[in-house]
Structure formats: C-alpha cells, structure tokens
Amino acid sequence: MSIQHFRVALIPFFAAFCLPVFAHPETLVKVKDAEDQLGARVGYIELDLNSGKILESFRPEERFPMMSTFKVLLCGAVLSRVDAGQEQLGRRIHYSQNDLVEYSPVTEKHLTDGMTVRELCSAAITMSDNTAANLLLTTIGGPKELTAFLHNMGDHVTRLDRWEPELNEAIPNDERDTTMPAAMATTLRKLLTGELLTLASRQQLIDWMEADKVAGPLLRSALPAGWFIADKSGAGERGSRGIIAALGPDGKPSRIVVIYTTGSQATMDERNRQIAEIGASLIKHW
C-alpha cells in the first residue's frame, strides 16, 4: 500500500482519535458579512469528516447552483462504474471539434489522439474542462443518470439537468442544476469515506481534487503551510461562485467545507476574496 493510499485508508482512524471539535460562531459572522459585502445569498456548511456531524452552517438547506462543483460527483459516478466493471479508466475516447464547448483548455489539445477516461476526469476536476465533463456525462448516460446515481446514494436534493455550459445559467428560483450545502457536503463525505467506492477509487477521487489547479484564489489562499486540501470550485452566471473541499491540518483532511453564493453584482475577484476570507476565519478558529 502506498503512503497516499495509507493516508486515505486511515482518515477515519486518525479522526477518531482527534480531540473533540467545537464550532466557532466567528466564522458564521464572516459568512454573514460576506453576504453584506456581496449583496447576495451565501450558503455555508462545515462537517466533521469522521462523524458527519454538522459543526457550523448557514442557509444549509437553500438551493444554490452547483456550477462546476458537480464534476466531482460526476467522476465519482464514473469511478463507481469502474468498480462495477462497467468502465475502464484506460479506455480512450475520441471526439471532434464539434464536441468542444466553451472553456476546454485540455480537451482542445487532444482532438487528434483523444483522451482516456482517467485523463478526462483529471481534466474535468483539476482544470474544470467543460468538454471533458460533457464527454464523461455521455459515458454514464447524461445528466439524468448522474441525478439517479445521487438518488441511489441517498441524495434526493442534488440534481443535474443540463450539460456544460448551460448548467451554469443560475436563474433565480430555478431548481435545475442545483444542490443544497448540506446535501453536497453529505454526498461528498460519502464519496470520500464511505463504502460506495473502493479504496482505490476513493484515493483516485481525492487525488484529482488535491491536484486542483484553478481554485488557488479561494480556500487555498488562506491555508497555512502543512495543511491538506482537496477541492473543486465552480463559477456561473449572475454572480455565482462555489467551492467544495476536504481539508485539515497535519497533512490530512478532517472536515468537509461547502460554500456557495449566487445573485451578486460583485466582480469575480471580490467573490473570490470573500470566500478566501471565510476560509481564513475557519482556519483561525479551527
């Protein structure tokens, strides 16, 4: 067993022997301040990774656009098919120029040779490549099948209805392509620590998230040296922004954090800054 596999296998073990965790309302004060600064709703939840206990939450059962955070769930569904012998990570998928959609920095470079399922998941999570996500959605049967996968996990809230990039439209009061912070946090925890996926697939999923290259201005910008984070960000229309993450000190994750916002007129930089400040408060009061 590799060191990384050992780390993920012992996530519940280490967490069980940690000192009790206590909620700190100071972080919620910052979440509410972010709402004021952005002029928009902000949803927040913080779960203990081992027990699933909610440590703090704000608007945990209000719907927010998922945006690209759905790509972690998508690759979880792909990995479940791999575990069941219905898919192979090494299978190569070929596609054409007509398949390319807006923001496809990886797939646009491989029109000639195609990409493997493993490479597509890596591109979808680490670079948020939209064509990679659409190609992977095709392998599982489309958005409705991802929703069905989530329902089978016990998540009857999260739903995907459309493809990239239309799913980022974020129309107010439109339930399409949305989740709730509580539902997303619980589902992410199941994917990373539950028995739904094999140990190898859980490790692969967290490795992809740990290698995320496009979430630097968010929670990662607030992390002290030595902290662990595996995350996936999302951005959408109407001032929408979000991030889902597993993080913790001492090089291992111990909490799940989900943050979503929508309806702001603020710039992307300002949305990023507010999420980073929430992260800084979380870490300060850990």
Rank of each mutant, 00 (worst) to 15 (best):
L79G: 07
R238T: 06
E195K: 13
T112H: 03
V214W: 00
H151W: 01
P105R: 14
G234E: 05
W286Y: 06
L74A: 07
L192R: 04
M184H: 03
S221C: 07
A235E: 14
H110E: 15
E56M: 01
A211F: 00
L74E: 10
P105S: 04
D174G: 09
H24F: 11
Q37K: 09
K284A: 05
I93C: 03
T186V: 02
G90P: 10
D113S: 10
I244G: 10
T147N: 05
L196W: 08
T267P: 10
Q203T: 09
P143K: 12
E35R: 02
D207M: 08
M66P: 09
E169M: 08
T179V: 10
P65E: 01
T138G: 06
G226D: 12
L188M: 12
T179W: 00
V106P: 10
K252C: 02
R176S: 04
S57C: 01
Y103A: 00
I45Q: 09
L73V: 13
A222L: 14
G52E: 02
I243S: 09
P217D: 02
N168C: 10
W227I: 07
D33F: 04
R92E: 04
L282H: 03
I93M: 13
I243M: 13
E119H: 06
G154K: 08
P217V: 12
L146D: 12
M67T: 10
H94P: 12
D177I: 05
R255F: 08
G251V: 01
T107P: 01
A276P: 05
Q37C: 11
H110G: 12
G226V: 08
A124L: 10
P249T: 07
V72W: 09
S80G: 06
S201W: 10
E145W: 08
K252F: 00
P253T: 12
D48Q: 00
G248D: 05
E35P: 05
R59V: 04
A200N: 03
H156P: 04
D155W: 13
Q274K: 01
R220Y: 07
Y260L: 04
T193H: 11
Y103W: 09
D212S: 14
A124G: 09
W163K: 10
L191C: 15
R189T: 11
L100T: 12
K284Y: 05
E270W: 02
L28N: 05
G85W: 03
T158V: 07
L150C: 10
L192I: 05
E102G: 12
K213F: 02
E169W: 03
P65I: 04
D129R: 14
A133M: 10
G76H: 05
V257H: 01
A40T: 01
G251E: 00
Q97K: 00
W163L: 08
N168P: 09
L205T: 04
A200G: 08
K30Y: 07
N173E: 08
R220A: 01
V258S: 05
T107I: 07
K190Q: 02
